[in-house]
Amino acid sequence: MKYLYIFTVLMLIISFVKDKKKTVQGIKLGLKKFNKILPSYLVMLIVISLILLISQKFIVQYLGQKNIVLGTLTGVLIGSVTMMPGFIAYPLAGILMKEGVPFIILGGFVASLMLVGVVTYPVEKEYFGKRVTIMRNVLGFIISLGIAVGIGIFYGEVF
């Protein structure tokens, strides 16, 4: 985070030295884009804060199982519809790991948590359009399953 600010200030200085007018134009353009998308981000934040409320309970309840096929599918599904910060998701996954939940299930959950964003839909659709957003997320779901199965194979949980 600190580096983002250092980098931004550095870029602004370089840009300003090279061309004052272009810099002002760039800042204006960036802020205009930000202003335009802000309401979509706000709606997304509301959805996230509601979903986060129920998802932790859900994860402990439904991922804590040892049936690999069902568990992996559930893991990918829950990861897809929820969105949570790493400092909540990973300690949860760590607890499940210690309870003996297979890595294939944890892998599916973690991968889809990052890859599939049902809740980021309001923002993504503005930049990619509805159809591409849906296709990209369906693809993300399949990729998450693929990554999970790969992890399962390497940990010797599949064969």
């Binding site: 985070m1 983002l4 600010y5 980098f7 931004t8 870029m11 602004l12 840009s15 272009k22 810099t23 134009q25 760039g26 800042i27 204006k28 353009l29 960036g30 802020l31 205009k32 884009k33 930000f34 981000y41 934040l45």
Partner: peptide, 18 residues
């Protein structure tokens, strides 16, 4: 978001013009 988005969008703006 409040911390990341403003500088990120300024960088995107600079990207657009440069």
């Amino acid at each position: 978001m409040a911390l990341i988005l403003p500088p990120a969008f300024i960088l995107i703006g600079l990207f657009e013009v440069w």
